[in-house]
Design a protein around this nucleic acid. Structure first.
Lengths: 221, 221
DNA sequence: ACCGGAAATCAACAATCGTTTACATGGGGT
DNA sequence: ACCCCATGTAAACGATTGTTGATTTCCGGT
C-alpha cells in the first residue's frame, strides 16, 4: 500500500454531483453547455485545483477527452465558466435600479437567497483563484467592475473626492455577501443567515442599508 | 509535449514563500514548528489540495520526507495546523471583554488589521475545507463555537427565545470578516477595505455596531 | 440504403502527487 | 575520543492527474 490514502481531495469526499439535463442525442452544443454547467458547480464548490476533469466528465456522463476536444484544456474550460458567469451577472445587473431598497433587495435575492440553485455559486466562482494568469485577470477585473457597479447602483456619484470611501462601503457589502455564500457552501454552518425574503427588513437588510446609505450621513470625520 | 501545461496550480503560480526563521542546528521541535508555520500559510492562501508537501518542505528548506516523519501524512500536518489555530484563537478570545466597542475593536484589529501578518490567514484556514472527515469536523465545530462566542461577547444572553436571531447576527458579522479576508487574500482587490485602526469609527465599525447592537432595538417586527 | 463526417470513446502518455524505504550525518552523553 | 541514536537526505514506488492519438459509433444529406 504505497499511496493508500492519497489525498482527502479538498471536499468532494462527500460531494456526488450528477447531470441534471438529459443529454439524449449527440449534440455538440448541448454537451458543451452541460460540461460548462457541471464545471461551474465543481470549480465553485471545490476550487480549481481540487476539481478533476474526470469528475466533471463523469458528472455529465461523458468521456474525459471531450473536455480537451471542446475547450482545449482544463484551463480553457475554466475560462469558459468565467465568461458565462460574467455574462449572466452583466445581464442581471443591467436592469434599471429604482431606489436603494431595490439594490438591497436584489443583492439579497440574487446572491444570498438564490432563485436559481446555481446562482450563489457564481459569486464563489469569481472568488476562486485559478492560478492561471489570464483567468485570474478576468476574475479580478470582473470583481472590481461589479464592486464599482454596486456603488453606482446605490446612487453614489463616481467622480467625487470621497469616491474611495464609497468603494470601501461597496467592498464591505460585497465581502459580506461573499462571506455568507462561503459560510454556507464551503462550511456546514448553513442555516440561520440564509434566511428568507423578509431579510430585507432583517439584520442583513440593516447592514446593507447602513453600507449603502448616503455616506455623508454617518461616516467618520 | 504530453503534459506540457499540467495545471495552473490554483494560485501558487505567483506565490513564492520562504522560511522566516533560521533553522541553524538540527532541532526536531524547531523544524516541526517551522513546518507548521509554512504549512499554515500555504493551506490558508492556496487551499489544501493545491498545496503540495514539496512546496512546504521547500519553504522551510528541508526534505519532503520529514513531513511524513513528523506528522505521518499531509493530512496529519493539516490537523496540526488546525489545532494550533484553534489554540491561538482560543487564548486570544479568552481575555475578558469590556463593552461592545471592545468586541468590535478586537474583531477589526485581530482579523482585518492583523497585528501579526499570519493572523488573518488563521480565519481563512478555518474556512478552507480539507476533504478529510476528521479535519472538517474540527473545523466546523471550531467555527461554530467561535460564532457562538462572538454572540456571547456582545453581551447577548444565550438562553433567550430570540437566540437564533442573535446567531444570525453573529454569523453575518463573521461572514463579513471572512469575506474581507478572502477579498484581500484570494483576490487582488486588496486595498480600500483593509483600512487602519480608525476603522472602528469608519464604515466597518458602523456595520459591526449595527450587527452587535442590542437586537431588540432595530431588528424586524 | 449508404456513405461522410462529426461526436464520442478507448487506451495510453508524461508529469506530478503523497508516501516509503534505505542511506548519510551530525551532536550529545559516557 | 568514541559510539549511537535522533535528525535529515536521496531515490524510488504506486496512484492520480491533464492530455492526446487512434478508433468506434451514430446522425444527416444524397
Amino acid at each position: 500500500m504505497a499511496n493508500g490514502m492519497q489525498a482527502p481531495s479538498e471536499s468532494p469526499g462527500t460531494g456526488e454531483q450528477q447531470a441534471d439535463e438529459v443529454r439524449s442525442g449527440r449534440d455538440a452544443t448541448v454537451t458543451r453547455r452541460a460540461l460548462v454547467r457541471a464545471a461551474r458547480r465543481r470549480f465553485a464548490t471545490d476550487g480549481y485545483r481540487a476539481t478533476t476533469v474526470r469528475q466533471i466528465a463523469s458528472d455529465v456522463g461523458v468521456n474525459v477527452a471531450l473536455i480537451n476536444r471542446y475547450f482545449g484544456s482544463k484551463e480553457g474550460l475554466f475560462e469558459a465558466c468565467m465568461n458565462r458567469t460574467v455574462d449572466e451577472l452583466d445581464t442581471a445587473n443591467r436592469a434599471p435600479v429604482v431606489g436603494i431598497d431595490d439594490v438591497i433587495g436584489r443583492l439579497i435575492t440574487h446572491v444570498v437567497e438564490s432563485p436559481n440553485a446555481d446562482d450563489p455559486l457564481q459569486l464563489l466562482l469569481l472568488l476562486r483563484s485559478s492560478g492561471d494568469e489570464n483567468a485570474d485577470r478576468i476574475r479580478r477585473r470582473t470583481l472590481e467592475s461589479f464592486t464599482r457597479r454596486l456603488a453606482g447602483a446605490a446612487g453614489w456619484s463616481t467622480g467625487d473626492p470621497g469616491t474611495e470611501h464609497l468603494l470601501v462601503r461597496a467592498q464591505i457589502a460585497m465581502a459580506t455577501m461573499l462571506g455568507l455564500v462561503m459560510l454556507r457552501t464551503s462550511t456546514g454552518v448553513q442555516p440561520a443567515a440564509s434566511a428568507t425574503s423578509d431579510d430585507l427588513t432583517g439584520p442583513l437588510g440593516e447592514v446593507f442599508r447602513v453600507l449603502l446609505a448616503d455616506p455623508g450621513s454617518a461616516s467618520r470625520a
